[in-house]
Structures are given as C-alpha cells and as structure tokens.
Design a protein around this nucleic acid. Structure first.
Length: 189
DNA sequence: CCAACGATGGGCT
DNA sequence: GCCCATCGTTGGA
C-alpha cells in the first residue's frame, strides 16, 4: 500500500485536490497545532510556484516524494510549511496558511509572544512560528514524528479564491478555506 | 560577484 | 493603506 495516503488523503493527487481535502484535517508538530482552515496549492506549471523554474538547492524537497514537508524562509523572517504532493520529481505542494489552534495553546502563545487565539496561527508565518517550524523539518516525512495528520470528521464547507501575496498567476483560484472561520488569514470574497 | 526580490507580518498614519 | 525589517535564494554580469 502507498505511503502517500495520510489522514485519508492521497498526496499523489494534484495539489488543488489535496489542498481542498486538507481543510478540516488536524495538523500537529510535536503535539502542537490544530485544524487546518486555510491552504494554497502550487504546481510545477505554475508561475507563482517555487518549483516553476525547476529544482534548486532551496526547493529540492518539493521535487521529493509526496507526503513530505517543504519548508522555506519568507522575507528572511518567516518559516512557512508546505506539504508535498504529486509523484516524486513533479514539484507540487500545498502551503498551509492558517490553523484553528487546538493543541499546545500555551506553547504557541509563548513562541508568538501573545495569547490571543485569533492571532496564533492566522497566516503562514504566524503558524510556522507557533508550531516551531524551522529548516530542520524540511524534507521530513509527514507520517512520523514530529508530524501528525489526523483525518477530519464530518463535512466542511470549503471556500475558494485567488492566492495571496503573489505577483504571477494572480487570478488562479487555488486558495481554499473553511467558510466563515474566524481563523483565516483573510476572509474570502 | 552582486543586486534584486520575495507564497509575510507588525506597526503606524 | 503604507512602510519596512531582514536574509536566503536566485539569476544575470
């Protein structure tokens, strides 16, 4: 059986499909985390994707096997977490943009320097800081410590829209979110 | 070698 | 809404 299946999701599928199915899934790093409420898909033939220009020293994890992490530093400050999908060598992933904090609230608050739940994980950089994401997690498998992915229970209503903070392919509707969640980095139109 | 540029967030106007 | 910290990566000279 394929180790590409995690939390009931086939990570060898196209990134928009994986992204949509990740809404409602619980993500933990060393027991700290919560329910995924916002993600964005990126793919190889996608000008906004880090993988667009081919494999480099930074993005090699994106070309590795699905079901692994791709971590990068944004603006020299923020560590951001992606989950790799498609087949090995393809170069696709899903950026985790926001969580509803559920586990390890105290540790998140300490790392973030504030306690307001709404501000702990509402954005890729905030989430990275709250969960203690760093370069060390790059290329690590998601089916083993420190990661945990727990299937969602029940149904969710998924909102769709264009991705945030990019300058190319700005109209591609590959941002997905839990409709109406107060933990989104920004509301959907 | 080196300049330009971020898949951002926080603070201030 | 605007500004900018901060630094690794990239791509062109």
């Amino acid at each position: 059986m394929s180790c590409h299946i995690l939390a009931g999701i086939d990570f060898s599928a196209p990134s928009p499909q994986v992204a949509r199915r990740l809404i409602g899934v619980t993500l933990l790093v060393n027991g700290v985390g919560g329910r995924i409420v916002e993600v964005e898909a990126y793919d190889r033939e996608d000008p906004a994707s880090h993988s667009f220009s081919g494999q480099t020293a930074r993005n090699f994890a994106m070309f590795g096997p699905p079901g692994h992490a791709y971590v990068y530093l944004s603006h020299g400050i923020h560590w951001c977490l992606n989950l790799v999908c498609r087949e090995e060598g393809h170069g696709a992933g899903v950026l985790i943009r926001a969580l509803e904090p559920l586990a390890g609230l105290e540790q998140m608050a300490a790392r973030r320097g504030l306690a307001e739940a709404r501000l702990l994980c509402s954005g890729p950089g905030r989430l990275g800081q709250a969960l203690g994401v760093t370069r060390e997690l790059n290329a690590m498998a998601l089916d083993a410590a420190p990661f945990e992915l727990l299937p969602r229970k029940g149904r969710v209503q998924v909102a769709v829209g264009p991705r945030i903070g990019i300058s190319k392919a700005v109209e591609v509707p590959w941002r997905f979110g839990l409709a109406g969640s107060p933990y989104l980095s920004r509301p959907f139109r």
